[in-house]
Amino acid sequence: MFQHKLEVRNLHFSYPHSHEIIKDLSFTVSPGESIGIIGANGAGKSTLLMLIMGVLFSDSGEIMVGDICVTKKTLPLIREKLGMVFQDPDDQLFMPTVYEDAAFGPRNYKLSEKEVENRVLNALEAVGALHLKDKAPFKLSGGEKRIAAIASVLSMQPDILIMDEPTSALDPKSRRKIIKLLNSFTHTKLITSHDLDMIMESCERTIIIDKGQIAADGKTSEILTNSVLLDSCGLELPLSLQNCTVCGSAKV
């Protein structure tokens, strides 16, 4: 079902009156892969996601989803295949109830109300949020909001899930829940995060972006244990791999 690969070729981008923020990025994502995109603040992660989603358009280079190139014309097609979960769920949950929010996407694609209901209930069930169906977003906890935001994207039945900081500002239990949830999805996944421990658990491949360029691209187990590489890109070893703060004994 998830047969689309994602290809980014020689991407360049700069905001008006600003330096180049993406410089010659290229990588390919195979179907079913789960990739973590990490990098310091301002490295260009969010811009990359915006470019892939077609919110921004590159100065040169191209992005291919399957065999379709991301352009203004192909946006409706592209957006059916890509689902993006925003960092702040309050930006994503704009309807008065969780159900309505999950139904917003399918309804825009003019599906029958029966089909819409089907998809919404399936999506809510997949994230274990059926009980939140009629709740207003402002009554949800941070973790519940996150889950609802994911459901609102799943109801579009995308092939590729793109997530911006899915575990930020969550308590440990909610974070754990989200990680379990992410790992249960068979979609192709592209996750940006500063939570490197989450990336370790959820992604087999990691790309480090530093100053708009790819600094490393390879197996997560290799990249996230390379403290020299991480340090040079403004990052640190994942907390779980750092020396014990009490006794100072090394783990790696």
Binding site: R79, F86, F94
Partner: peptide, 17 residues
């Protein structure tokens, strides 16, 4: 702006159903 993007990414084209 972000809300607009979130709507857009889910197929919003000015019509509300």
């Amino acid at each position: 702006q972000r809300v607009y993007q979130a709507m857009n990414l889910r197929g919003f084209s000015g019509e509300y159903h």
